[in-house]
Design a protein around this nucleic acid. Structure first.
Lengths: 225, 225
DNA sequence: GTCTATAGGCTGATAGAC
DNA sequence: GTCTATCAGCCTATAGAC
């Protein structure tokens, strides 16, 4: 981030501070996803980040606030992507396929630990979630609902319930990515070894399942180019 | 619980001991599902069960062994139900619909906390699971795979991958039931209030989604009565 | 900004009376 | 079998030197 030599103290050290913050966010994301909020001592995060324990309190104000910072930043990024898709004017079936691919891409590349963290959080009933964070899942829900509802209105989809459809779609994707580590552990240990399914294969499976499962009964053809 | 007078000590008290055990299993099931293994102090389990803290060590040998006893007993019961269904000679699409209903029934009546506990466990990669327990999910997987594979072989289903189909089916159901508490909390707090979806509605939604989503392309009719 | 040292709370497990 | 009392360990957070 910085191209010239800097003093070792004073405002010039901002780069190191940012690096410390980022290291804590990264290490915390991995560890919280793996073991849950209560399962991770701050010492473990500090060690993994290569910084001192006390930096968590200095930069974030405590373990809980570090946790919230991680969840919030990731949610914001994902919401932006999903809401952009929801506004696409293309046919709903196409948009839905792209949404599934986008979730897969998010869950494997950009935010590889988000599914686990979000799922854990939601399972506790949102114990650690601020009121400010609690409506973020609702925005994702809203975006998916709008896509499905438009598909139904256009006659591309059967008259399915958008909320239930959202739950089945997002649920199976989040489940897949949150449990990937377990599958690798169990399937790889079997003799003969079973290869754990690849994310790309699952994304395609879900796209096809939804395409067939939601398609309106009588009209296979698209009504718009 | 007691119909005749019994001595206050000696073998005649076995019935009370069983009641203590059961109370601990029940209380532990609810609390572990809600807050996860690390999130529950043994004192909370004892209090909810109405027995003394030390009884956990006396009857189960520690917190961890109580936890394993709960997970193992529930898994065994569910595996029996699912494997019985997998051996049904009826057409695969029918059996699959019944499997979905059975999961819904299990998750709402007989083992209302199992989805949360299993999902939490699987998300940690099986940290708390004994080697003896670790193949129980594999038996459920095997049963669902056999149903799907038979549907494909009979020409009732598209040539879908049985493993991926199992993951999408079980994943979306487990997700739904594990996150029910969160939905109630978030949806019920909104104005205007949104009614959280009922389990029965979701079961029907999943049955229809899979029926349409897996059906072989050209032949809608059943090939066996 | 970063570190060390430590305070103070909570946890799981047990010893021993009954 | 059940209870009370207690212990040792680990946790988060902070004070204060640099």
């Amino acid at each position: 981030m910085r191209s010239v030599a800097l003093p070792t103290t004073g405002p010039g050290r901002r780069r190191d501070a940012a690096a410390t913050r980022d290291a804590l966010l990264t290490a915390g994301g991995e560890l919280f996803a793996e073991r849950g909020y209560d399962g991770v001592p701050v010492a473990a995060i500090a060690q993994k980040a290569g910084v001192n324990k006390a930096m968590i309190n200095y930069h974030f104000g405590g373990k809980r606030k570090l946790y919230l910072a991680i969840v919030s930043a990731t949610f914001t990024d994902i919401i932006a992507r999903v809401e952009a898709l929801a506004e696409s004017p293309r046919p709903a079936p196409e948009v839905l396929r792209e949404l599934i691919a986008a979730v897969g891409e998010m869950a494997t590349r950009r935010h590889p630990h988000f599914c686990s963290m979000m799922l854990r959080e939601v399972m506790t009933g949102g114990k650690h979630l601020d009121p400010a964070l609690i409506d973020k899942p609702a925005r994702i829900l809203g975006a998916v609902q709008r896509i499905v509802a438009r598909g139904v209105a256009d006659g591309d989809f059967r008259p399915v319930d958008p909320l239930l459809t959202h739950l089945s779609l997002v649920g199976s994707l989040v489940f897949f990515f949150a449990t990937a580590r377990f599958r690798e552990r169990v399937l790889a240990a079997r003799r003969p070894r079973i290869e754990p399914p690849a994310a790309a294969a699952y994304v395609k499976h879900m796209q096809d399942l939804l395409t067939h499962g939601l398609a309106a009964e009588r009209r296979a053809g698209r009504r718009r180019a």
